[in-house]
Design a protein around this nucleic acid. Structure first.
Length: 948
DNA sequence: CAGAGGGGCGCC
DNA sequence: AAAGGGCGCCCCTCTG
């Protein structure tokens, strides 16, 4: 408590907050509000824009009413629901306002998190409380919980409850005949699944489903929405009656997050066909920046007037989806019977049985909301013109884009999830043993060293960065705030492995406290974290330890120390074919720092020991992350189906349109050089099958060359060969000269009888120049600044800037194009990808410089990254619609941004590989309209590791 | 005890 | 003065 007060004092001392305090926040709906503190009142000024007119609204709140303990609840909610994240650092002056805002920011954060969680699965218990229930402020908000329940049950009379097979037959007959031409929104509720941990494939049980095709349908007594009681109305048999409907490819079905519902339905043994649209994808396409503006859950979308304004006048009676928590959430009771803070929701089965009427309405509303959302999104997307490669597509809109690209793509993703990847668990189990043993060895090596300086370090958790920071840097001041300092020592809770009985205890407790102190040596601080503390990341530690080089090993021999086999991988951020040599560029620099650190020890031997220990530490950390990120989760049954295959979820949920993968994330499995346990070997083809792994070469750079129409880059790609070498040649006259004089070769393909090139290769002779060129090639597309490069390269900013200019000299078009994108982001608030998807940015008029910088870099990067994603998507569409591949039995399993993985019969592997390469190099309907060729590299093998 | 946030790191 | 774009997920620590 005291510590906290101290901290606050520091803050207030540092801030020069003016007496009339002002700050801005971003509200939940994405708009901005200006707050002013005026004596005892908080004035909120909000600018609203209704499409044509801007207007200002003011609200006043009594601070005293808010800060008192026994304040009315509504007042507190009022603040927390309307204050968004703080965007300005002008913090209130250590007053109670500070607390209010802290609390609201906190509440808002958890709100966002819940939104994020719920956007995928509506069936989870992760719903959130109602939005803007306080009508004093949120005029557009929804009514209060009780009203919601009332209004909700008002739809009950429109719902036909189907709870027996006879009824089901009647309803399905209407669905498949009379109403087959309509668009049907469908939704399921699922029990017995933990959506945060488990894949819906072979997990979960459907308790009910709802189908809605608009108010014009009549399934008897004017009821237009169907609700099917799977739980108590006949289970599997009842559901099977609906197979006729779900399997019909001509009956159009709309879903919100199709993937989940598709899987849980297909778990019952029939397939789902006739996929027409996924409203979550449509909403993403319409506005990809809602992550921080409410997210993409059905609730958030249908509760947002901006989203729903396209629904049209026939949907006057819009009731957005309401989360389970709002309707069914109950306060957890404490032991004494009073209400606790936590909201709990009864299991789905229980709700369906015991809160039947509201539950039916809740579930039916999902389908109704989904259809309304679809109509709105259709209308909104139709208003957006479609520009492909910068040219207007005649009379087509982004809704056409959705239908032509993302709708079929959505189907592909679901199929890929269903396929899954076969994982060799036995192999992983073996690897796990080895990894754990190696980790233990390294950890003990470090602990033994550390406990010489700090006895309790013997029991420390070497995986805790806080503990490490304490041990290595205790007493060091914070770089951002010199008034804050790491304490000299600090206690930590650790598992009581030695069963130590602490003072005052009779039996050993599960945990015990240890005291960690600084090792008492001033280690050089390589980098600081964003919050100003010394970094203990891998990079920082490696820099600390340096490489055990020749100069040191002399001293080492003298001290009779054994060089251990700790491998320091200095490849940095670049991973590529020559990453082994990547480290040498910074080596000398690191060396001197290491020595500098060394001198601070009593004797050289101590310093060398420290280096070894820190090297071991790096090893522990890297092994630990491999085990807990990859080796263990891949063996979990939560993420695999009955066939032992791992089914990740593939989402279109990025700002740029790339895919992301979850549960597990198969897109970040360790790659070749860093894969010390060859984890990719665990991804195998089924017996008789092979994998095809095909990836684009320098896809993003090729896209950049096309978008900027950069002659130099286009020429280099046209010429083929090693692009980075060619870049180096273009940047440095002396290299060009050497090439012209034939002293070095740009690239070399061994002819029969030759085993080494006649003269050195550029990549060997001018390795450091090539490395710089290569880094620039990647960095420039990301908008990296000379400052960042100078850090990477350990050179002065001026020098880095010079190198950057060298790169731009031959590529002026790129510079021009980048400036145009920044301008576009500034003036129009959006940039476009190759296929015409937009990414919108917040207004920069009163943005901080860091936000401005971020937006500008994103404006440069998004067209490149997003267009690459477009190309990869087109390639996948080509692959999946290729009839020959289908006949041969080849199926897409995974995409990793510029790489696709397929599985199929070994006997046709070579044929299939050629087809895949064809699809990828001509991804636009069998053509490639880019100014640059698309290079594709491919291999087939029995496992992922071997196929690279 | 759960949830949020920080730090870190895997991939492209 | 200024620290590269896009992700998911792990662990730890702190907090209510």
């Amino acid at each position: 408590m005291q510590k906290r007060d101290e901290k606050r004092r520091v803050v207030s001392r540092n801030s020069n907050a003016p007496p009339g305090l002002e700050f801005t926040t971003i509200l939940r709906d994405g708009t901005r509000a200006l707050w002013k503190q005026e004596s005892n009142e908080l004035l909120k000024q909000k600018c609203e824009y209704d499409g044509s007119v801007y207007s200002f609204k003011y609200e006043r709140m009594d601070i005293n009413a808010i800060q008192t303990q026994d304040k009315p609840k509504s007042q507190k909610q009022l603040i927390s629901r309307n204050v968004g994240q703080l965007v300005d650092n002008k913090r209130p002056n250590g007053s109670s306002l500070d607390d209010i805002l802290k609390e609201s920011a906190w509440n808002n954060g958890s709100f966002m998190q819940r939104m994020e969680n719920e956007k995928q699965f509506q069936s989870s218990e992760l719903g959130h409380t109602g939005i803007g229930s306080n009508e004093q402020v949120q005029t557009k908000g929804r009514p209060h919980k009780l009203d919601i329940r009332e209004r909700l049950t008002s739809i009950y009379e429109s719902v036909l409850v189907v709870d027996n097979v006879t009824m089901a037959k009647e309803v399905v007959s209407k669905l498949t005949n009379q109403y087959r031409h309509l668009i049907h929104a469908c939704d399921t509720e699922v029990a017995r699944i933990d959506v945060k941990e488990e894949t819906p494939i072979d997990h979960g049980e459907i308790t009910c489903l709802s189908i809605y095709c608009g108010p014009e349908a009549d399934f008897g007594h004017g009821k237009s929405c169907i609700w099917v009681d799977v739980l108590d109305g006949g289970g599997r048999d009842l559901l099977n009656e609906f197979a006729l409907f779900f399997e019909d490819p001509d009956i159009k079905k709309v879903w919100h997050n199709y993937s989940f519902d598709n899987h849980v339905i297909e778990n019952y043994g029939f397939s789902v066909s006739g996929f027409h649209a996924d409203t979550m994808h449509m909403a993403r396409l319409w506005d990809s920046s809602r992550r921080l503006k409410g997210g993409y859950s059905l609730e958030a979308l249908t509760g947002d007037q901006k989203v729903m304004r396209g629904a049209g006048s026939c949907y006057k009676e819009l009731i957005g989806k309401v989360s389970m928590k709002t309707i069914f959430g109950k306060k957890k009771l404490k032991k004494d019977g009073s209400e606790g803070k936590m909201t709990i929701i009864a299991p789905v089965e229980e709700l369906q049985r015991e809160e039947r009427e509201p539950w039916i309405c809740y579930s039916a509303l999902d389908a109704i909301s989904t259809l309304q959302l679809y109509k709105s999104m259709e209308s909104e997307l139709s208003k957006m013109p479609w520009n492909l490669d910068g040219k207007r597509v005649f009379q087509k809109s982004m809704f056409d884009f959705y239908q032509e690209y993302w709708q079929p793509f959505g189907e592909i993703l679901v199929r890929m999830e269903t396929e899954g990847m076969l994982v060799d668990r036995a192999y992983l189990a073996e690897v796990e043993k080895v990894a754990k043993a190696e980790q233990e060895v390294a950890a003990n090596r470090f602990r033994n060293w550390a406990c010489k300086y700090c006895p309790d370090a013997k029991y420390m958790n070497v995986g805790s960065d806080t503990q490490l920071r304490q041990l290595l840097f205790g007493g060091v001041p914070n770089s951002k705030d010199p008034l804050l300092t790491l304490p000299e020592d600090k206690t930590f809770k650790v598992p009581n492995v030695d069963k130590v009985i602490e003072e005052g205890k009779k039996t050993p407790t599960k945990y015990r406290n240890i005291k960690l102190c600084s090792i008492g040596v001033d280690l050089p601080i390589e980098t600081y974290t964003a919050s100003g503390w010394p970094s203990v990341s891998g990079v920082a530690l490696k820099a600390l330890a340096g490489k055990i080089s020749d100069a040191v090993s002399d001293a080492n021999d003298a001290a009779g120390l054994q060089l251990d086999d700790a491998v320091l991988d200095d490849s940095g951020t670049m991973t590529d074919e020559d990453s082994n040599s990547e480290g040498s560029y910074v080596e000398n620099k690191v060396e001197s720092e290491y020595v500098a650190g060394l001198r601070r020890f009593q004797t050289p031997e101590e310093g060398i020991e420290a280096c070894h220990a820190i090297a071991s530490l790096c090893e522990v950390c890297s092994i630990d992350s491999l085990i807990s990120n990859f080796i263990l989760p891949l063996q979990s049954s939560d993420i695999s189906g009955k066939g032992g295959r791992v089914h990740c979820s593939l989402n279109i949920n990025t700002e740029t349109g790339r895919l992301s993968a979850r549960r597990p994330n198969l897109q970040n499995q360790p790659a070749l050089e860093k894969d010390r346990y060859k984890i990719r070997q665990a991804f195998i083809a089924a017996p008789g099958n092979s994998l095809i792994v095909a990836d684009y070469g320098q896809l993003e750079l090729r896209i950049l060359a096309h978008l900027a129409n950069c002659k130099s880059m286009l020429d280099a790609f046209k010429a083929g060969g090693d692009f980075h070498s060619r870049t180096a040649m273009n940047m440095y006259p002396h290299i060009r000269e050497a090439i012209e004089k034939k002293q070095v070769l740009l690239e070399w393909y061994p002819q029969p009888g030759e085993n080494k090139p006649p003269v050195p290769l550029l990549k060997d002779a001018f390795a450091s120049e090539r490395r710089k060129a290569k880094m620039l090639n990647f960095s420039i597309a990301y908008g990296k600044t000379p400052v960042g490069l100078s850090r990477d390269w350990k050179v002065s900013v001026a020098e880095a800037k010079e190198t950057v200019n060298l790169w731009y000299k031959e590529r002026k078009e790129v510079l021009k194009w980048q400036q145009a994108r920044k301008k576009e982001a500034r003036e129009n608030g959006r940039v476009y990808t190759l296929l015409g998807r937009a990414r919108v940015f917040p207004s920069l008029t009163d943005a901080s410089s860091s936000l401005r910088g971020h937006v500008e870099r994103a404006a440069i990067n998004t067209p490149v990254q997003g267009s690459a994603a477009d190309v990869a998507m087109c390639a996948m569409l080509e692959i999946s619609k290729n009839t020959r591949l289908q006949e041969l039995g080849w199926k897409l399993l995974l995409q990793v941004h510029d790489e696709v993985i397929l599985e199929g019969p070994t006997e046709s592997a070579e044929v299939a590989k050629a087809i895949v390469v064809g699809c990828m190099s001509k991804p636009f309907g069998g053509k490639n309209f880019l100014n640059v060729d698309l290079a594709v590299d491919s291999k087939c093998a029995q496992n992922w590791y071997a196929a690279k």
